[in-house]
Every structure is written in C-alpha cells, then in structure tokens.
Simulated scan of single mutants.
Amino acid sequence: MTQRSITARRLLTGLAFVALMAASACAPHTTAENIKDAPKGPEPFFSFPVTSNDTPYSQCLASFRKHPANNLPAFTVGEVADKTGQIDRTSNSAVISQGVSEMVMSALWKTGKAKLVERFDLRIPLAEMKMIEQGLTTRPQNGMASSIRASDFVVLGALTELNYNIVSQGAGLWVGGIGAGARTVVINVGLDLRVVNSRNFDVGYVSSLQKQIYGYEVEANVFRFFGSQLVEFDAGRIQNEPLQLGVRSVVEMAIYQIMTEYFGLPASKECGEIQEAHNLDASDSKKES
C-alpha cells in the first residue's frame, strides 16, 4: 500500500468518525427518568408506536374546552383544495397533502366549541336513507332519525402557496474530492380560509396565513476516483420539519383565529399570531435585487 493510499484511508476514517459523532451529538438525549415517566402503550412489532397527531398549535385549540358554552354553532367543512399546482415528477403525485379538508375538521373538533355536520361526503348517508325509504333496511323504533340538522357556517378555502428556497444558505470546502459542508433551506406554505354564513351566504371572516418550514443539513462527503469508477462516502445528519406538519400547523392556527377573532372566544398571548417571518440577510437581498 502506498503512502498516498494510507493517507487517503486515514482521512476517510477520520471524516467518518467526526460526522458520525456530530450526528449522535445532535440526537435527542434520553434519560432513564424520561423513559420511566413516559406512558406505556402497546408494544409495536416494528419501529415506533402510534401517537396523537398534534402540532404546537393544538394546545391553543384545546384551551377553548375549559370555557363553558351553550348553543354551539354547527359547522360544515367544504373543499379545502390544493391549488399550489406542485407535482412531484419523480412519483407523479402531489407534493402537498390532499386531506386538508379533513385537517380542518379535526382542528374544529379539537376546540370542543363546534358541532360538525357532514356535507363533504354524503354518498353513504344518502344511500342509507334511500335504502330505508325502499324498505331494503330498517331502523329500530327507538332509533328513528329526526330532521337533519342544518349548518350555521361553512368553512371553505385552499392551499394557495408552496414556495421553495425562499432562503437558502450554506458553506462547504472540498479539495481533491475531500471535504465537508453545511446547508440550510427555508420554504413556505400558504393557506386561505373563509367562513360563510349558511343562512345568507355572507362571507363573515377570512384568514390568510403562511408558515415557513426550515430544513438543516450537515454532511461530510469523500469522493475518490479509482480508474473509471466514482466512490462516494457520505455521513451526516438531515433535520427537516415535515412539510405536511407545516400544513396542519397553518390549518390549526387559522381555526384558532376564526374562533377568537370571529366568534369572540378568549385569546391568549401564548397563542397569538407572530407577525415577523424569516428575514433575508443583506447578501440575499443583494442577490434578489
């Protein structure tokens, strides 16, 4: 083995060790006390157990439950469509979740201050009613349905923005195919919701929100050519906020706005809307100009 090969091998091993140590240092620290206090659930066969699908804004919605209220309004949720027009060409599928309407329903339910009536998918309920009318099925005497409750308000809207790389920065150094680097990126999603009065079709409130989603990547790459083949070693850590979690967060904040600003439920400072967003630094501003 030549001296050059030995040096390259040592450098490769050293970079691998540093990268793996950095990744492990950034991992969440678990203590025996945390494990002891954690609730015990069914043991999954593989990977992680089922958990609640909450965001940091879910606690703001849940805070409404402590306020007594009568005569709750009845909401129905219409289509909250994905109008970003973004398609993942590798899988030929939508980038954004197509279940935003269901996210709105879940957010309203978390408030405990809304009655939900179904209008989004009436295929099964209408088929059930038709079967009863035709005598194909029967309903128990004590279970006869009364008149169907009308909705008081309809929630409609769309995901209107998905912008990539609104801020992107990083640094790296590679010499002779050996080096390391770090990179950050920020994208954003935008949501527009409106509340329609079911009695007169007036639009009573409009919420327009956006959330910036942060990604952080650290990597250590080693590239070497051996003859005509490229050999790559890659070790590092990628930490990205899930895109769909960002969408659900925007939805829950929009419902919080509707319940406080339109329906007058008490708001808290901890759940207030933050006005400032990620600002571009001077260098980024110069690039854009």
Rank of each mutant, 00 (worst) to 15 (best):
A267H: 09
A27D: 03
T184F: 13
P68D: 01
A8T: 07
S147L: 01
L159G: 01
P28H: 06
L245M: 15
G227A: 09
K113V: 02
W109M: 08
D121W: 07
A27Y: 02
G177N: 08
V195S: 07
N221K: 15
I132H: 06
K40Y: 02
F223V: 11
D37V: 04
V196Q: 09
A16P: 08
T138M: 09
V50Y: 04
Y205A: 12
M21G: 05
L280D: 05
N53M: 10
A25M: 08
G246L: 05
M129F: 05
F75C: 07
N279G: 13
R248Y: 03
S58R: 06
F64R: 04
H278Q: 06
I238W: 03
S289I: 10
L15N: 10
S147W: 00
A69Q: 12
A158E: 14
M105K: 15
L136M: 14
A182C: 01
G135S: 06
A23L: 00
F64I: 01
I35E: 15
Q275M: 12
T184S: 14
G85Y: 02
G272D: 07
R10T: 04
F223Q: 13
S208G: 06
F225W: 09
E276H: 12
S249A: 12
G204L: 12
K269D: 01
D281S: 03
T90W: 09
P39W: 01
S146R: 03
G177S: 11
R248L: 14
A127D: 02
Y262F: 15
G236I: 06
E241Y: 15
Y205N: 14
K36C: 00
S5R: 10
L15E: 01
F233C: 14
T184V: 12
S91K: 13
G190T: 06
T138D: 12
L193A: 13
E102I: 00
R9C: 02
S101F: 05
I87V: 14
V251Q: 12
K66W: 02
S151R: 11
A127I: 12
E273C: 00
R194T: 10
N221R: 15
P39E: 02
K83V: 00
S5Q: 12
L156I: 13
S24W: 04
R89V: 11
V175D: 09
Q275L: 14
M253K: 15
L230H: 12
